[in-house]
Design a protein around this nucleic acid. Structure first.
Lengths: 229, 229
DNA sequence: CTCGCTATGTATAAGCC
DNA sequence: TGGCTTATACATAGCGA
């Protein structure tokens, strides 16, 4: 009989959507996740296929920062800000604000370079420390690890992290009753903790930190561009 | 009559291509242009649909800088650079159009500070490494760490964990396109030596170059994108 | 948020201007 | 470098888990 004649469509398939802010909260969130992934994938392909340097920073509608960078976000941003850490020859023909600006620019570029180097070294050391902890003698770089290796390394780190976390809690608890003698400075690092703008992401994309620091400053409403059909 | 039914295909249609550097110079260039446009379009859609803030910087294989920014690249980069290290809220209305020198000065100060932080941090890590090598007993080691050391070590692990996670993400993503993990990659041959902060991209994308901190160095200017007409 | 599934909307590799 | 056209490879909206 006609009982099963109708194989109801299992899906509505992809629907065309208007190019304007998605109002439905949930749908917007899901769309963001999917498209962010898609965007980063496209960026990855572009850099691989054409050997281009790419840097992307995305703040989710909720205010969470995500970033992508190849070879690294720092590298690209620094270059953008400093106007080229290498101080290209073309630079000598400029006279925007006289020598002062020029001088500042040079110093800026120099600092940027040093900063990057410092970060690089720092990253190496951090890696060394962790690697030591995880597996004495393990000097393989994360970048060269295979999926399986990463899996196990990741687990090891997780365990370590928990261990450290609990130990810290213990200390914190103690310090609550007696002023703890913290030596050295606040060790504020780079403002919002490790790795946000650090050189840890070399050619990869990753959620950039917790992002709680920013809160959200909602994007000033964006009208659809006039050229959208 | 129409016996001549065979109209030779006018096109081969889209061909599947391997995810690896395109060797043919010309094809690579063309691919770059097309995909760059596609990437920017995707970014535009993401920002409109989900109300996200996005910033992108791309250096073409030839070294030409292109950028995209919503609400503006400067806005996004500024956030990343100063990273809320100083004052998150105030940064909101950074005057890029106004005093460039002032901006540069702030950057300079910020970088100097970060450099010092990095140095301090490096010292800490070196000690950590030494301590580690001196006594490979993890738990014991953790138990003896001071609050501050734990803080930094914890951050180190967090960063590493993220790094591992991203690496894995990359492997997974790539394996979806090409069933082979890229080890190391085609090698980085990056370093074009220029790129400037245009400060003029408000909402739309355009090649960076014109009106930067240093003036322009022969970057071809670029009209608004006429696609999606 | 992430993952899978399906039906479709789109981005694009080629080739020629 | 962009534009156009065509035939396809991919991305992704809507819905569930």
């Amino acid at each position: 009989m006609m009982t099963m004649t109708r194989k109801k469509r299992q899906s509505m398939g992809r629907q065309k959507i208007a190019m304007k802010r998605i109002e439905r909260e949930e749908a917007r969130q899901v769309c963001f996740s999917k498209r962010r992934a898609g965007l980063f994938k496209k960026a990855t392909e572009l850099s691989i296929l054409c050997g281009a340097e790419i840097g992307i920073v995305v703040f989710s509608p909720a205010g969470k920062p995500f970033s992508f960078g190849h070879p690294s976000l720092d590298h690209i941003i620094s270059r953008f800000i400093s106007g080229g850490a290498g101080a290209p020859p073309q630079l000598h023909g400029i006279r925007v604000d006289g020598d002062k600006l020029h001088h500042l620019n040079e110093e800026h570029a120099g600092l940027t370079e040093k900063l990057e180097e410092a970060r690089r070294r720092r990253a190496e050391l951090e890696m060394a420390v962790a690697a030591q902890q995880a597996a004495p003698g393990l000097d393989m770089e994360v970048q060269q690890m295979t999926m399986e290796e990463l899996e196990s390394f990741h687990n090891t780190l997780e365990g370590l992290r928990r261990n450290v976390a609990s130990r810290r809690e213990e200390l914190e608890m103690l310090s609550a009753v007696e002023a703890k003698p913290i030596r050295g400075g606040p060790g504020a690092m780079f403002g919002y903790g490790f790795g946000y703008l650090s050189g840890m992401h070399n050619g990869l994309y990753l959620p950039a930190g917790a992002g709680g620091l920013y809160g959200q400053y909602g994007v000033p409403d964006q009208r659809a561009f006039p050229f959208w059909g």
